[in-house]
Design a protein around this nucleic acid. Structure first.
Lengths: 179, 179
DNA sequence: CATATCATGTAAGTGGTTACATGATTGT
DNA sequence: ACAATCATGTAACCACTTACATGATATG
C-alpha cells in the first residue's frame, strides 16, 4: 500500500488539499500507523487526478496562498474499496529505541535511564492527547473503524507504559563499560 | 540507523555469516523491531570489513557451500557503542492492518471479521513462541537488554490480543455497501 | 522428483525522503 | 526582527528490495 492509496483513504473522510493531508498524517489519527512527506503526496495526488480517482479544484483564499482541494470521485471511492480489500502485508516496525536497548549492556547506565525516561514522557503525552476530550485531532472521525483503531493504539501505548513502569529496576542495573 | 549498524549489533552477540545474520533478522529476536534483506546485508558487511570494523574469514564446510564468518574487531565494538549512543529517531510503524480497519465501514463484514481472526491467530502464535521455553530463537540471548526487549514485545502483543478479545462485538457490526 | 535449505553476491528497480524554490501572513 | 504557518511543486538523492546468477545437498 503506497502513498496514493493513503491519499484516497484520507480523502474518503472529506475533501482536502495536499497540505491538509500531510497535516493529517503528521498530527492526526493516521500518524500512529502511517507516514508520508510532501514529496510523495503531491505527485500521488496529481497522478490520482489524472487517473480520474480524484478531482482537484483550485480554491482562492483571502490572505493565504491558493489551495487545490481534492475530492474523491465515485470511481475513486470504488478504487479505494478495491484496494482496501486486497491482501494486506505484515506490519512494518522499525524501532531504534528497542534496537539500542537490546544492547543495553553496551551503554552507560545514565544513557539507558535517559532513554527510558524520555520514552515514558512521550507515551504519557500521547495517551493524554488521545484520552483527553476536546480539540484532539482524532475526534474529527466518526464511526466504528476509527474508534476501533483509536482503542487499539491506546491499548498498545498503555501496555508499553505499564511495562516500563513495572521495569523501573532495569534503570539501575550496574553501569556498562561504555566507549 | 542503517543495515550496517544492525550487522554490527548482531555480530556483538557472536560471529556470524551474512546468511546467519539474515536468519536472525527473519526468525530471531530482532525480527520484532527491525528488518533487512540479503541485498543490503552483504554489501554492508563488505563495507564494514573494508572499514576495519569486522573481519571476514572464509570457512570451508563439508557438504555445504563455504561461508564467510564475520566477527567484530575492537574498533568495531567501539564503533557500535558509539552509534548506539547517537540520538535515536522515532519508531517507524506502518500497519496496513490498521489502515484497512480504520476504514472498516467500507468493507464487507465478513472481510473485517477475517482480518481480525487472522490477526488473533498470528498474535497467539507469536505469544506462544515467545512464551514457550525450549528451542525458541530468543533464548539464545542472555543479559538484561534482550530480556527487557523480549518483555516489552510480549507486553505489546498481549495487549493487542486482549484488546481484540474485548472488541469481539466489532466483528458483527452491520455490513458495508462494498464494491 | 520437486522443493527447501545452505550460501554469496550483483544489478536493476522502486518508493520513498530531503532539500530547494517561492512567497504572503501571522504570531512572538 | 525572526520564526512559524500556510501552500505547491520539483529534482536530486538514497537506502533498501526484488530478481537474477550459481550450485550443492537434504527432505518429503
Amino acid at each position: 500500500m503506497d502513498v496514493a492509496t493513503l491519499c484516497l483513504a484520507v480523502l474518503a473522510h472529506g475533501p482536502a488539499s495536499g497540505y491538509e493531508i500531510k497535516k493529517e498524517l503528521e498530527d492526526g489519527a493516521y500518524s500512529h500507523f502511517f507516514r508520508a512527506s510532501f514529496g510523495s503526496i503531491y505527485p500521488a495526488l496529481a497522478r490520482l487526478a489524472q487517473e480520474g480517482f480524484v478531482t482537484g479544484r483550485e480554491q482562492e483564499q483571502a490572505k493565504r496562498p491558493d489551495k487545490k482541494v481534492y475530492r474523491l470521485t465515485p470511481a475513486g471511492k470504488r478504487e479505494l474499496s478495491r484496494r482496501l480489500q486486497a491482501p494486506i502485508g505484515p506490519d512494518y516496525i522499525r524501532s531504534e529505541f528497542l534496537l539500542v536497548l537490546f544492547h543495553a549492556e553496551l551503554l552507560p547506565a545514565r544513557h539507558r535511564r535517559a532513554l527510558i525516561e524520555e520514552r515514558i514522557r512521550q507515551l504519557q503525552a500521547c495517551i493524554a492527547e488521545m484520552t483527553g476530550g476536546g480539540e484532539a485531532a482524532c475526534n474529527r472521525y466518526e464511526g466504528s473503524g476509527p474508534a476501533f483503531v483509536h482503542g487499539y493504539g491506546l491499548a498498545i501505548y498503555k501496555a508499553e507504559l505499564d511495562y516500563l513502569d513495572s521495569q523501573r529496576r532495569f534503570f539501575d542495573l550496574p553501569g556498562a563499560n561504555a566507549a
